[in-house]
Amino acid sequence: MKILIVDDDAIVVQSCIRILELEGIKASSAGSVEMGAKLLSAEGASASFDLILTDVKMPGQDGFEMIRQAREIQPAIPIIMMTGYLTTRTMEKGCCYAADNYIAKPFTPDELIDAVRKTTLRQKGETGK
């Protein structure tokens, strides 16, 4: 399992990588939407991701743009949004771009793992059908 983390704040990326590492999940990171899209579209086994974890508010293109582009490249990939705080509006917007789940910052390691597990499980269940 490999996860793409998109966030402009390095400490958040680092925290996520550490948490996922402990669970044996590999992760690559991108500091911006452009970078994330590039990584997604790159060829080769090292670039095939099972899940995207993206921040919403980023300088330049935001998390919603990330989702839109990700869907173009890899329509079925599960996406989790990390938001500073969840509002109805972000939820609505996220749903429009078909994020699969969300997690509110700040989160604890358990909360993140939980979100990732649930999202991938749900995804598997749906594709298994």
Binding site: I11, V12, S15, C16, I19, K105, P106, F107, T108, P109
Partner: peptide, 8 residues
Amino acid sequence: NPLTAVLT
């Protein structure tokens, strides 16, 4: 964001 790191 920093809080996420501290918590983590």
